[in-house]
Amino acid sequence: MKVLKDDDVQSRPGLQDWRVLAGRLHGSFRTRSMTRGIELVRRIGEVAEELNHHPDVDLRYYRVHVTLTTHAVHGLTERDVTLAGRISEAAAAMDVEAEPSRPRSVEIAIDALDIPAVMPFWEAVLGYRPRPTPTAEGEPAHEAGSVDLEDPDARAPGVWFQQMDAPRPGRGRIHVDVHVPHDEAETRVRAALAAGGHLVTDVYAPSWWVLADPEGNEACVCTWQGRDD
């Protein structure tokens, strides 16, 4: 099963309701009521059973969030593209509004000198599990949006570990990665700067911008763009 590149998926016709974030396909649909949300989830379930490909669905009072990935290969495939299109059709048939700028995906990054020594602590304290080793041919060992530890229920943010070359006592060693739709990123960066933050660097943009709050705590605003190399 071939893993698709993020730009290939995001540029597909019929996926205007969806955004690639951290190697997954996300859709958000504004149902405006719990009853309509339940009905949309029911229709999504029917399509998923028909295609034998199952999404993660988060039902809230006012909207439904859907996340797609092919777990067998830890990436996006044609199965996700097909299911996304069918879900959009189901939402449109109910006159449910898609909100493509709304999805987000958050990761926590921990800088460490000795990652094998540090990781078991976080695995235990969070109740997380190691992310499975990539199995798809050509899948990178640590791609953008992958994590080292993940929530077994796929609800809480993933954690990944960044190798440090030397101690940095004057700088924080934990930062937050916020993956947003590629066409929402600069708006999010401007909002953070207007709220008192400052730009640490944009040398990696549009893959990510490094920002910091007034006390120097860092966050990266990330997209799928510019990562193929």
Rank of each mutant, 00 (worst) to 15 (best):
94 M>N: 13
59 L>E: 02
28 S>H: 11
206 P>W: 02
42 R>F: 13
177 D>L: 01
44 I>W: 10
65 H>V: 06
16 Q>R: 13
155 R>H: 09
35 T>I: 14
216 G>I: 11
52 N>M: 12
73 V>I: 14
127 G>V: 05
174 I>L: 14
176 V>Y: 00
31 T>L: 02
132 P>Y: 09
40 L>S: 10
61 Y>S: 01
167 P>Y: 10
172 G>D: 13
83 L>M: 12
9 V>C: 09
77 T>H: 09
159 V>Y: 00
51 L>R: 15
95 D>I: 06
59 L>G: 04
114 D>W: 02
152 P>L: 03
131 R>L: 11
133 T>H: 07
204 Y>N: 11
213 D>G: 07
118 V>M: 13
224 W>T: 00
35 T>P: 02
104 R>V: 12
221 V>A: 02
214 P>D: 07
188 R>L: 05
188 R>M: 07
173 R>C: 00
15 L>Q: 10
191 A>E: 15
195 A>N: 08
68 L>S: 11
131 R>N: 10
103 P>C: 10
214 P>C: 10
88 S>Y: 09
33 S>E: 05
221 V>H: 00
189 V>L: 04
69 T>A: 15
94 M>L: 15
26 H>C: 07
163 Q>C: 06
178 V>A: 13
86 R>L: 14
106 V>E: 07
209 W>M: 01
190 R>K: 14
212 A>H: 04
13 P>Q: 07
84 A>N: 11
173 R>T: 12
180 V>K: 01
144 A>I: 08
21 L>H: 05
104 R>I: 11
155 R>E: 13
86 R>T: 05
197 G>R: 10
206 P>Q: 03
58 D>G: 00
154 A>P: 00
9 V>L: 12
184 E>R: 14
204 Y>S: 11
107 E>G: 01
200 V>M: 03
88 S>K: 10
229 D>T: 03
155 R>F: 09
117 A>Y: 03
24 R>C: 05
58 D>E: 11
6 D>K: 04
83 L>H: 07
4 L>G: 03
64 V>T: 11
96 V>F: 12
8 D>K: 08
93 A>Y: 14
4 L>F: 09
178 V>R: 00
199 L>F: 07
142 H>D: 13
